[in-house]
Design a protein around this nucleic acid. Structure first.
Length: 593
DNA sequence: GCCGTTTTCGGCCCGACTGTTTTCAGTCG
C-alpha cells in the first residue's frame, strides 16, 4: 500500500519561501523584503498549482506580489527543485535558528544576537544560556529580558497550543459575564479569532468601551480565574488564566469603539489590506478611527459599518475577514449573504439510544422542537459498526416503523426523518442492501476506519458510496479530529466533483471536535456547486446546540442558505432527497449497460 | 523584493507595552 506521506511540490515551495522570509528576518534584511517573501509563500499556497504550470517570468509577474526576483525563484525551483538564494541563506544562518522564533518574547533580532554572541541555536541551548545568566550580559538585554525568555520557553512547553473553538468560546462567555457583573453598564465585545469563529483559538481578545479605563483594567486583572498579569498598561492588559490561556483586554473611548472592534477583530492579513486601501485613498485607519491624512480630520470610528463605509467598503461579517477575497467583494459591493442560525430548519445527523446515543427518539425530538426545528433526521450507526452498537436490519426496520408512528401522532411540529449512518467499508461496501435503504428518508455514509490507507483507496471507497443511489450525504468527509487526528488522505476535489454531479451532499459536521468539512473545503465546495448538509452528530440532547459552531464554520466558508440542505423546508428537502435518488439510480443503470 | 491615474525611485500598515535606555529598539498583535 502506498501509505507514504507525500509532500506536494506546492507545499515544498511554500515552505521554501517561508524559510527565506524567516532567515532573511534573522539576517536583518529590511522588513519589506521579509514581507515580500512571506507574501510569496501566501501566493504559492493560494495559487501554487497554477503558478507551477507557467513557464516564463512575464506570466508569473501578472500576479500582484510577484516581481522579477520571485518569478525567477519560482522558475528555478520548478526546473531544479531548489532555490540557490535559499541555499546561500542556509549557509549563512543555520535553519535551526528558525525554531527559536517560536519562543515568545524572542524575535529575530535577539535570535541573531544570541547566535552570534553565544552560539545558541536550539531552544535547549537558549534555556541553558538564560539559566546561566549569559543572556543578561548581551547588549540591549537585561535580567528582565532574560526572565521573559525563560517564561516564554516554559509557556511553549506547558501549553497545549491552541484551544478548540467551543472551549475558548465558553471561557470567553464566562469572562464577559464576570466583567458585566462587576461593571454592569460597560460595553463589551469579543474580538480576535474568536469573533471570527476560527476552529482553534490561540488567545482570547476582549474589547471594552469606557470613558475611564482604569476601573475596567482593575476589575479585569482581579478576576477570579486570573493566574497572573502578563502586562498592564493604560488601555491594554494581558493576563494568563488558571487554565493557561492568555486573555487580552483593550479599552477605548465609545466614539472609537467601531474602529477598535475592526482593528482588534482582525485578521492581521485582512487589516493590512484594509490599511493599504485607506492609505491609497489618502486616509489612515488605526484603532481610534479613520482619518483624512491632509488635515487629520476624523471620518469614522463609532461603528464598524461606518469605518468600512468611510473606505468605500461594505462591512464584511467577521467570519469572512481572512483576506480570502472578502476585501475585493466588500469594495465591489458583492459580499454574499451568509447563512444564519435562524435559517436552519433541522438537523440531518443525529444518534439515539438505539445505537451509541443516550436519548430516546421522543427526547431528541423534544430538544429539536425547543430549537425551533421542523425536522430531525435519525441516523443511528449501521450494522457493521459494532463498537457503536450499530442496528441490524431488523432493529433498523423496527425503528423506521416507530418513527412512522411518532410522526403519525401529529403532536410535534418536528417531523422525524428515518435514516442511517452507514459505514463505508474497506472496499466501499455498505451495511444494508437497496431494499432496506429504499425505506429510509436520509442515508448518510461515512468512513470510520482504515484511516491510514492510501489516498487512492480512501478516495475509491468514498466514491463508491457517492455513486450509491441511496446515499445522499457523505458525513465528516475528511475524518479529522481537531488537535487529535489529521484528516485521512483523500482526493477531495474528485469527491466534490462527483458529488456535485450525482446530487450527493457533503456534510459539515458541527460536532466541535470535527467541524468537517472545514472552512477552506467549504469555499471549494461552494465553487464546485456541491450541496452541504449540516449535522450536529448529536449523541445526547444538549449536543444539538453544536449547530451553532456548524453555522459559524459555514459562514467562514462563505455559505449562504442556498448552499445548505438544512435551510430547505421539509417538502423541498424530501423532494431533493428522493428526486436525487431516482436520478442516481438511472445513472447507475446506464453505467452497467 | 514589489510597485506606480499623484512615483521607474522612494516609498512600503499601525500602534501599545516593556526594558534598557538618556531617545529608542524589540516584540507583539
Amino acid at each position: 500500500m502506498g501509505g507514504a506521506v507525500t509532500v506536494s511540490k506546492v507545499d515544498e515551495l511554500v515552505r521554501a519561501f517561508e524559510e527565506m522570509a524567516e532567515l532573511s528576518d534573522i539576517k536583518g534584511e529590511v522588513r519589506f523584503k521579509v514581507n515580500a517573501y512571506h507574501r510569496a509563500a501566501e501566493l504559492v499556497r493560494e495559487h501554487g498549482e497554477e503558478l507551477l504550470k507557467l513557464d516564463d517570468v512575464k506570466e508569473l509577474r501578472r500576479y500582484k506580489g510577484i516581481g522579477e526576483g520571485i518569478a525567477k525563484k519560482i522558475l528555478e525551483y520548478k526546473h531544479t527543485g531548489a532555490i540557490s538564494k535559499l541555499e546561500e541563506l542556509k549557509e549563512e544562518i543555520p535553519v535551526e535558528l528558525i525554531s527559536l522564533l517560536q519562543v515568545p518574547n524572542l524575535g529575530p533580532k535577539r535570535a541573531k544576537l544570541v547566535y552570534d554572541e553565544l552560539g545558541v541555536r536550539t531552544i535547549e541551548e537558549l534555556q541553558e544560556a538564560a539559566e546561566a545568566h549569559r543572556l543578561a550580559e548581551l547588549y540591549g538585554m537585561g535580567p528582565k529580558a532574560e526572565q521573559n525568555i525563560l517564561e516564554g520557553i516554559r509557556h511553549l512547553r506547558t501549553t497545549t497550543g491552541r484551544l478548540p473553538l467551543h472551549q475558548a468560546h465558553r471561557i470567553q462567555e464566562e469572562i464577559i459575564a464576570q466583567m458585566r457583573e462587576r461593571l454592569p453598564k460597560l460595553a463589551l465585545s469579543p474580538a480576535g479569532s474568536l469573533r471570527r469563529m476560527k476552529e482553534t483559538i490561540g488567545d482570547i481578545d476582549i474589547l471594552a468601551a469606557a470613558r475611564d479605563a482604569a476601573p475596567v483594567m482593575e476589575a479585569f486583572c482581579a478576576l477570579p480565574g486570573v493566574e497572573r498579569v502578563l502586562l498592564r498598561g493604560d488601555t491594554k492588559s494581558s493576563v494568563q488564566t488558571v487554565d493557561g490561556l492568555q486573555v487580552d483586554l483593550r479599552v477605548v473611548l465609545p466614539e472609537e469603539y467601531g474602529a477598535a472592534l475592526q482593528y482588534f477583530t482582525g485578521s492581521k492579513d485582512h487589516n493590512v489590506r484594509v490599511r493599504e486601501i485607506a492609505k491609497k485613498a489618502g486616509k489612515k485607519i488605526n484603532e481610534y478611527g479613520v482619518f483624512r491624512v491632509k488635515d487629520k480630520r476624523r471620518l469614522a470610528g463609532e461603528t464598524e459599518e461606518e469605518v468600512y463605509r468611510a473606505l468605500g467598503m461594505d462591512c464584511p461579517p467577521p467570519e469572512m475577514r481572512e483576506n480570502r477575497g472578502e476585501v475585493e467583494a466588500a469594495l465591489e459591493g458583492t459580499l454574499p449573504t451568509l447563512v444564519e442560525l435562524a435559517d436552519i430548519r433541522g438537523d440531518l445527523h443525529v444518534h439515539s439510544e438505539a445505537s451509541d446515543g443516550i436519548a430516546s427518539l421522543e427526547e431528541m425530538r423534544a430538544a429539536a422542537e425547543a430549537l425551533g426545528y421542523r425536522y430531525l433526521a435519525i441516523t443511528d450507526h449501521a450494522r457493521n459498526l459494532r463498537v457503536a452498537n450499530g442496528l441490524d436490519r431488523e432493529r433498523l426496520l423496527r425503528q423506521v416503523e416507530e418513527i412512522r408512528k411518532l410522526n403519525a401522532k401529529g403532536d410535534s411540529p418536528v417531523t422525524l426523518l428515518s435514516g442511517s449512518e452507514l459505514n463505508i467499508g474497506n472496499e466501499g461496501e455498505l451495511d444494508y442492501d437497496d431494499e432496506v435503504l429504499s425505506q429510509l428518508d436520509v442515508v448518510v455514509a461515512s468512513v470510520h476506519g482504515g484511516f491510514r490507507q492510501s489516498r487512492e483507496q480512501v478516495t475509491r471507497r468514498i466514491l463508491a458510496a457517492v455513486r450509491n443511489p441511496h446515499v445522499k450525504i457523505i458525513a465528516h468527509p475528511t475524518g479529522r479530529l481537531i488537535g487529535q487526528r489529521a484528516p485521512y488522505e483523500v482526493d477531495l476535489a474528485t469527491v466534490m466533483r462527483e458529488a456535485a454531479e450525482s446530487g450527493t451532499a457533503l456534510e459539515l459536521n458541527a460536532f466541535p471536535d470535527r467541524l468537517d468539512l472545514n472552512d477552506e473545503n467549504l469555499m471549494e465546495a461552494r465553487k464546485l456547486g456541491v450541496k452541504v448538509a449540516l449535522g450536529s452528530d448529536a449523541h445526547r440532547r444538549e449536543h444539538l446546540a453544536f449547530m451553532y459552531y456548524g453555522v459559524a464554520t459555514a459562514r467562514r466558508g462563505w455559505l449562504g442558505p442556498e448552499h445548505l440542505l438544512n435551510a430547505m423546508d421539509l417538502e423541498e428537502l424530501l423532494e431533493w432527497l428522493w428526486r436525487g435518488r431516482l436520478d442516481k439510480d438511472r445513472k447507475r443503470a446506464e453505467r452497467k449497460r
